[in-house]
Amino acid sequence: MNDTPLIELRDLSFSHAGEQTLAHISLSVAASEFIAIIGPSGCGKSTLLRLVSGLLMPSSGEVLVGGKPVTGPGLDRAMVFQDYSLFPWSNCQDNIVLALEQARPDLSRAERRQIADDYLAMVGLANCGRKLPGELSGGMRQRAAIARALAMNSPILLMDEPFGALDAITRARQQDMLLEIWQAGGSLKKTVLFVTHDVDEALILAGRVIVLGVCPGHVAADVPVDLPRPRSRGNSIASSQFRELRERLLHELDSAVARQLEAAQENQEGSGI
């Protein structure tokens, strides 16, 4: 087993417009790990993901992927946004084909189309290739976005609250689908960084949960989730181990929010004088 981490964050800090959002974050992610990043809103969890994706550059520290520092976005890291992972003017198939033209230029046109159809079928959208993203429901759109990310064959998947805008039932189904696809990867499982604000979602999916604290964002807790795999939403959520982990994460989040409120109050008092 190769023990150099696939993704490594070294003393990462990020400031924007004079305000520090992330401070001194260090984190190692091994290949095939599924990591969830949770934290109260405003803790910089999306910023952290954007730093790994290369859409943002750190103010200090560095992000290493496969041992090399990240200098910008790369096709080795496929991104799934909360919405808008697909361009609204192209149908689903064309969206995936465009991503494939970039990620796998060796393929022929026909092969790209075939792969796009295959992945759409895999996420249960077999007949939706010709549909525009706007003609699909929110859940279907996210499935198409996941199909696109998977088709690119990138070893790393970065997911920024991909199910955040969905209703509870759709969300549960998407989680099961993602688990199924990821677990089917065998020894070639993708490495996933999954940002969410939902504790249950983090525990159902991830093998490790990073809790971010606030003011500025920092790693408040790094919690391994030793629930047995293969998992599904149904067989995890009822176990006592799940409940204990959930209590612990909720506690961590609570104290992060409490600190955020204290800090906000101090700030107000400070400016009041």
Binding site: L55, M79, F81, S85, L98, Q102
Partner: peptide
């Protein structure tokens, strides 16, 4: 142009 389209394009290295 929506900034997210640009992010998306950058992620695809277009």
């Amino acid at each position: 142009l929506e900034p997210r389209w640009i992010d998306n394009a950058r992620c695809l290295q277009l």
